[in-house]
Design a protein around this nucleic acid. Structure first.
Lengths: 341, 341
DNA sequence: CTGTTAGCGCATTCAT
DNA sequence: ATGAATGCGCTAACAG
């Protein structure tokens, strides 16, 4: 037991107290070499008694390793990303690595500055959750520090990306609507041009198309409208949909946010969900179960993604072989979809 | 312009290149003393050409300052907390300080470990966003590292807490319901016992009571029910409310999550919002505007809270006088409240 | 297995 | 104003 938090205890102090050399202390501390049992114990004891805490800076300076991994976020406050972050933190627990966060706010300039900062701090690895940084820039980073990509477009860096089977998720959602009797199914996606950061959305579009195709339903181009993943854009998308004469009985939105907006727009126009229009989102936003009606959606295993990212990061640092699974999303059936009469 | 990210450039390299001593380089780097104009320029130039990046560990080791402030969160993924974090990040921008995050997950043990980690990393300051750490523990921390409290109960540490006028927010919300003709107004709060971490909620309860009292409306104890701030508990609260015979025409929930749950429960029981029951929440959850109907709520200036926390932290480190304002929340009127016929 | 010797890269006296 | 010297606390060869 100790009383003062004022920690000026160094490795030297405990070396003296334990009657060994500093190096020996360092050895038991890092487990980097075998040490005589009695000395080992003496050191441990001294550490406890003096309440010794290693100076991280000295350690890093001497070893060249910072034992920290940098995490770049874009959406502090977003539930899905939050789940990923949580998973990363859990995955890093008891590994000896700590994490340092920085938020890019979905602004390229901020993100780049952020990464610079992390690199300056000599992080041993980088986990990018979402983000806009160009592949060429990533390539430069790669020569200096290993990185993992989560929830981000990944043509070039598949091997170091944690990926979800968005195609499958979208396919299942669409097929479910078809099974419920719907034929005229609208889809809210994002503009191809802005899909740089999320070919996820592209995969969802493809899944939608494939499901229609497999069911022998012709794709109606007018029923595919675009938004920007924010709620507001779901409203506009539905406005556009309604302005066309092309009828539809169901909407599959590429994410829950847009589904929320879509529902509000439908409501304003006097259409009831699911009585008049069935609705499915994507992400299982944590409000989805508490909306009226509760929203059918596709859940991505956010926490697992994060945990895998962390584990993979460590493997990468240790130059172990990587074997990243493709995660399967899950259709969560709730009351926003009705059988078409 | 440079091409290789491989940075082994030290202060010595640029000293040579600029024909000065390492100390001089350090001086221009830190601006710690006047340096001859020409040498100054030479150093700057060398730095640019060699793309020199100071080694943060060496700096910290030598100076004793880490230039980082630790941030303890509890709710990665929660929009309100996310706003605070964003504000902190913004407030720290261009101050020379960087931030290192850690999440306590609302688990005391995890939180304590987390703080230890941050302390080991010699953070110059600590910002605790929410959290359960006991006051006595905080007291111990205080002797070692200055800290700021945000969104957390704060009997003992008022001077270093960023606070919101929850009383006023709740008062305004309740009064609004009264103005709309409601007399039988239910309130969903949390159990007094679990309010350790959030006397905020207590303040909301008091504001509710005061508004009733000021309007000459007697408080109906049966109309005050308890939840745990999660959506699910809002459902249960309404169930309990409905089971009693005591009629009510409006509900003011201590947060939006519970309001969402309440609305779902009302819906299931066949009550419409706002036709049958008016509803107000608290927090301006970012889905609140997109629910059906859009939810009237009280907005806390999350980002500002964070910014203030950051600014205050820096003042604290520099031992400047603190002058923290009490933040005023704002009633956001939406369609979930109707005039009582 | 263990002690000794050098640094890691920078900030900071101390002289000059 | 500026260079030389010293040390921050620890790790990593190097001997023994």
């Amino acid at each position: 037991m100790d009383e003062q938090g004022n920690n000026k205890v160094t490795i030297l102090d405990i070396a003296k107290k334990a009657n060994v050399s500093p190096s020996t202390v360092s050895r038991v501390l890092r487990g980097t070499a075998r040490v005589n049992q009695s000395k080992h114990e003496a050191v441990i004891e001294a550490i406890e008694e003096l309440d010794y805490r290693p100076n991280v800076f000295a350690q890093s300076l001497a070893s060249g390793q910072s034992m920290t991994i940098g995490i770049v976020t874009q959406n502090l406050g977003d539930p899905f990303y939050g789940g990923i972050l949580l998973g990363i933190l859990q995955g890093l627990e008891n590994t000896g690595y700590s994490s340092i966060f920085a938020d890019g706010r979905w602004q390229l300039a901020v993100e780049e500055r952020t990464v610079e900062m992390l690199l300056d701090r000599r992080v041993d690895g980088l986990i990018l959750v979402g983000g806009l940084i160009a592949d060429v820039h990533l390539q430069k980073i790669a020569v200096q520090t290993p990185f993992i990509l989560v929830a981000r477009a990944t043509e070039k860096f598949k091997e170091q990306s944690i990926r979800v089977n968005n195609f499958k998720g979208a396919y299942d959602a669409t097929q479910y609507l078809i099974d419920m009797g719907h034929r005229n199914i609208a889809h809210i996606t994002t503009p191809a041009s802005s899909r740089v950061a999320s070919d996820d959305v592209t995969q969802r579009l493809l899944g939608y198309k494939q499901a229609l195709s497999d069911a022998g339903i012709a794709l109606m181009p007018e029923l595919v409208v675009e938004g920007n993943l924010l709620q507001q854009s779901g409203i506009l998308a539905v406005e556009r949909l309604l302005m066309q004469k092309r009828p539809f009985s169901a909407i599959f939105a590429a994410n829950d946010n847009m589904a929320f907006g879509a529902r509000l727009a439908l409501h304003r126009r006097g259409f009831r969900v699911p009585d008049d229009v069935s609705l499915i989102g994507f992400d299982d936003h944590y409000s989805a179960a508490y909306t009226i009606p509760p929203l059918t959606t596709v859940r991505q295993p956010a926490v697992e993604l994060g945990e895998t990212a962390a584990a993979t990061m460590i493997d990468l640092i240790n130059k172990k072989a990587l074997n990243i699974p493709l995660f399967e999303p899950e259709l969560i059936i709730r009351e926003s979809v009705a059988l078409l009469k």
